[in-house]
Computed example of a mutant assay.
Amino acid sequence: MDGDARLTRQEASDAVAGLGWRLVLGAIYAEVPVSSLAQGSQVAALAVEAAGDDGQGHLSVDIRAQRAVLRLQSAAQSAMTALDIQLAQTISAALTGRGLRLVPGSVQALEIAIDALDVRAVRPFWKAVTGYVDESGPSDLADGLIDPSGRGPAIWFQQMDAPRPQRNRIHLDVDVPHEAAPARIEAALAAGGRLLSDARAPAFWVLADPEGNEACICTWQGRD
């Protein structure tokens, strides 16, 4: 298969299911538990070496004292490609060959959703005030903006049909591995939340805190 070929969400999820990676918000992630920053740096170096030149524009690594989080996605397409799957396989083999474990862990991605009657009117403000940039290609984010440094949550804009003065118009979307969604929802309900809608599940569930502020638990499923 052509390395640039875009994959469906189902294809990407199935391809990495046994490798310790999970599909979250258009990218695949794996967490490697480490005992120190030094070991985290070693994990990053091993992953970069295994990926080679093909890793440029696809692989990123977040290093912390207890874990290194690996992320793969085509930056050029803002999507999963066949090459990303090949890199996941190569990196997994290199790390497990050194006795390291790849686990889905607590991997998640955060989005800020802004409801707007006129997306074209409000989007430039949020782009300017955050210093964010346009995504480079089509993705899970409608009219999405992203942090060019890769640190902040993504922003997307939800088209409103009519004003809703009695409802919050900015909410959080929390994207988690698909098998983690039920536990996250159960925890939110146990903490005093309410389930407002599961009409679009398993793509997302709409929940609210005790005062009605909303958040969505999201997965890749139900979107292809």
Rank of each mutant, 00 (worst) to 15 (best):
S74P: 01
S74R: 00
A75V: 07
A75S: 12
A75T: 04
A75M: 05
A75N: 07
A76D: 08
S78P: 09
A79Y: 04
M80E: 06
T81Q: 10
T81P: 04
T81V: 07
A82D: 09
A82H: 06
D84E: 04
D84W: 10
L87G: 08
Q89M: 10
Q89R: 03
Q89H: 10
S92G: 11
A94Q: 09
L95Q: 05
L95A: 04
T96I: 05
R98Y: 12
R98G: 03
G99E: 10
G99W: 12
L100W: 05
R101Q: 08
L102D: 10
L102Q: 06
L102P: 05
V103C: 13
V103A: 05
P104S: 08
G105L: 14
S106N: 14
S106P: 08
V107L: 13
V107D: 08
A109K: 11
E111K: 02
A113I: 01
A113S: 12
I114M: 02
I114D: 00
D115V: 05
A116D: 05
L117W: 00
D118F: 03
V119I: 07
V119R: 00
R120D: 02
A121V: 01
V122C: 00
V122D: 00
V122N: 02
V122K: 01
R123P: 02
R123I: 01
P124D: 01
P124G: 02
F125G: 01
F125P: 02
F125N: 07
F125L: 03
K127F: 04
A128G: 02
A128Y: 11
A128D: 09
A128L: 08
T130E: 04
T130C: 03
G131A: 08
G131S: 09
Y132I: 08
Y132C: 11
V133S: 09
D134T: 11
D134Y: 11
D134V: 00
S136T: 14
G137F: 10
G137D: 14
G137H: 12
S139P: 02
S139W: 09
D140T: 06
A142W: 03
A142P: 02
A142D: 07
D143V: 08
D143S: 12
G144A: 07
L145I: 05
L145S: 02
I146V: 13
D147F: 04
P148I: 08
P148E: 03
S149C: 13
G150W: 07
G150V: 05
G150H: 06
G152L: 14
G152P: 12
P153M: 10
A154D: 13
W156Q: 13
W156K: 15
F157A: 13
Q158F: 14
Q158M: 14
Q159M: 14
Q159S: 10
M160F: 15
D161H: 15
P163R: 15
P163C: 15
R164P: 12
R164S: 15
R164T: 15
P165W: 15
P165H: 14
